[in-house]
């Protein structure tokens, strides 16, 4: 295996698998939380609203993993000084980020699996499974890169939690992630296309057979998400604090 890949897996193994082996209960808690909003929406809408709620919960969970990664990274840096050990070693910042992001994914795996299964259950054909997985992976990687980038800026912030909930609102609450994009007036609808999570949710809605706007297509969705992924990775690579200045 290529060394960076092996390094990333070893980091994920240390911070994810070994941790879970010793604290299995944390898997339970991280698996449960993405279902809270789903539960509320399901009850309120009498099940009418399930598909939007599932798409929204899946997207929100992935945004959450990215932000949690940011928090983990700031914590490892300031509290444990672990990042200092990694910086002064052949491990590159992106490998470090990948390792911790994989470990985050591991914690999210039970919830993601159930949510993805629900997407299929609520109308997606099995042929759409690759699309669902691609959507998850794309959003997971761009949110992880965003988390890594944000982490540097959360380091010395006493209001890091506020920043995190703000970003969460911008990415998962305001845009049409949990609700039909058609509910938005034209101008806001076009604005919402600038947000990557809008497209992730639309892709999931699409795979469940929900109608999507005429001006939107899968290709458009992929293009915007890939653009964000590239952008966030570049930001993570160049602007996240690795060597301190």
């Amino acid at each position: 295996m290529m060394l960076p890949v092996r390094q990333a897996f070893l980091i994920a193994y240390s911070t994810g698998i070994l941790w879970l082996r010793r604290n299995p209960s944390s898997l339970f808690f991280s698996a449960i939380s993405p279902f809270s909003l789903l539960f509320v929406l399901f009850v309120i809408s009498n099940g009418q609203y399930s598909q939007f709620a599932i798409a929204g919960s899946l997207v929100m969970a992935l945004v959450g993993y990215g932000l949690a990664l940011g928090q983990d990274i700031s914590f490892y840096k300031t509290e444990y000084k672990i990042q200092d050990v990694f910086v002064a070693s052949p491990v590159s910042p992106l490998t470090y980020m990948m390792g911790l992001a994989l470990s985050e994914l591991l914690f999210g795996l039970p919830a993601l699996t159930v949510l993805a299964a629900l997407v299929v259950y609520f109308g997606a054909s099995v042929f759409n499974i690759p699309l669902i997985i691609a959507t998850i992976l794309l959003l997971w990687s761009s949110m992880s890169a965003m988390g890594f980038f944000l982490s540097s800026h959360m380091l010395h912030m006493r209001n890091a939690t506020q920043v995190i909930s703000f970003v969460n609102v911008i990415l998962a609450v305001l845009p049409p992630v949990f609700y039909p994009i058609a509910n938005l007036p034209d101008s806001l609808r076009y604005l919402s296309y600038a947000v990557p999570t809008t497209h992730a949710s639309l892709m999931l809605q699409h795979s469940m057979g929900l109608p999507t706007p005429a001006e939107w297509s899968l290709g458009f969705g992929y293009a915007v998400q890939i653009a964000y992924l590239v952008g966030f990775v570049v930001l993570a690579k160049t602007k996240a604090i690795w060597r301190e200045t």
């Binding site: 240390s14 941790w19 444990y80 000084k81 002064a88 070693s89 052949p90």
Partner: peptide, 18 residues
């Protein structure tokens, strides 16, 4: 340089569960 060095940072801490 990073291929050739090894460090003990001041006030580092090991990960709790490991």
């Amino acid at each position: 340089v990073r291929q050739l060095i090894s460090v003990v940072p001041q006030e580092g801490r090991p990960l709790r569960a490991l």
